[in-house]
C-alpha cells in the first residue's frame, strides 16, 4: 500500500468522551432498576477486565438510585473461549472472583463492547458452571454490531455502526487513566 495510506490506517475517531460514558452508565442503571422493578436479588458480574470496572460503576449508580449495595463479581472467560489451542499461544488467564452465590439471582453480565457475541457465549457458559441464576441479562457500553451468534444486549450505552475492519477501543480511568471510546481503522 502507498505510504500515505499506511499513515492513515490507525486513525482514531472518538465516539464517546468521559461525559458521554457517565451519561450512558447512568441511563443503563436506571433501565436496570426499571426493568427489574428494583434491585432485589440483583448481582453484577463484569467480564475481565473493563467489564469489571463498568460493573463497579453501575453498582455505585444503583446505590445512588436505590440505596442498596449490589454485589459485583469478576468473571474471566478465557478458559471458555472457543478458539483455545487453535493457533498461537494461550491467552493469559486471569482470576474469576465471585464471592457470592449466583443461584436464584438476577445476574447482569457487564462487558465493554458487544461484537460477535462469542465472548458473551463464553461468559454464559462460565456463569452456568458457577450456579443457576434465575435470569441473566447483558449490559454493554458499546454495541458495534456484526453478531455471529444469536445474542443481544438488554442494556446498551451506545449503538455504534462499524465496519469489520475497524476496532473499537474502550478506555477507562481505572485501567487506562482516561475515559473514552475510540474507533481505530485497521485496514490490514
Amino acid at each position: 500500500m502507498p505510504a500515505e495510506a499506511a499513515m492513515d490506517t490507525r486513525k482514531k475517531a472518538q465516539i464517546m468522551d468521559a461525559t458521554a460514558i457517565q451519561r450512558a452508565l447512568t441511563r443503563v442503571a436506571h433501565e436496570i432498576v426499571e426493568k427489574n422493578k428494583g434491585t432485589a436479588d440483583l448481582v453484577l458480574i463484569g467480564l475481565r477486565s473493563r467489564g469489571v470496572d463498568l460493573a463497579r460503576r453501575l453498582s455505585q449508580r444503583l446505590k445512588q438510585i436505590d440505596g442498596v449495595d449490589v454485589p459485583v463479581g469478576a468473571l474471566d472467560i478465557t478458559l471458555y473461549r472457543d478458539d483455545l489451542g487453535k493457533a498461537g499461544p494461550q491467552p493469559t488467564v486471569r482470576k474469576t472472583e465471585i464471592h457470592f452465590s449466583v443461584d436464584k439471582k438476577k445476574v447482569i453480565l457487564v462487558d465493554d463492547v458487544l461484537y460477535t457475541g462469542r465472548t458473551t457465549r463464553a461468559a454464559l457458559d462460565g456463569l452456568m458452571d458457577l450456579g443457576r441464576p434465575r435470569v441473566v441479562q447483558l449490559a454493554v457500553l458499546v454495541d458495534r454490531g456484526h453478531r455471529e451468534l444469536p445474542i443481544r444486549a438488554d442494556y446498551v450505552g451506545k449503538n455504534v455502526p462499524t465496519a469489520k475492519s475497524e476496532q473499537v477501543q474502550v478506555m477507562l480511568q481505572e485501567e487506562d487513566g482516561v475515559d473514552g471510546v475510540v474507533i481505530l481503522n485497521n485496514t490490514d
Binding site: 474471566d76 478458559l79 471458555y80 488467564v93 486471569r94 482470576k95 474469576t96 472472583e97 457458559d125 462460565g126 458452571d129 458457577l130 450456579g131
Partner: peptide, 14 residues
C-alpha cells in the same frame, strides 16, 4: 487464576 476452579461446586472448565 486456576486455583479458584478448585473451590467451585462444579470443578470443571472446558
Amino acid at each position: 487464576s486456576m486455583k479458584e476452579i478448585g473451590t467451585r461446586e462444579i470443578k470443571k472448565v472446558p
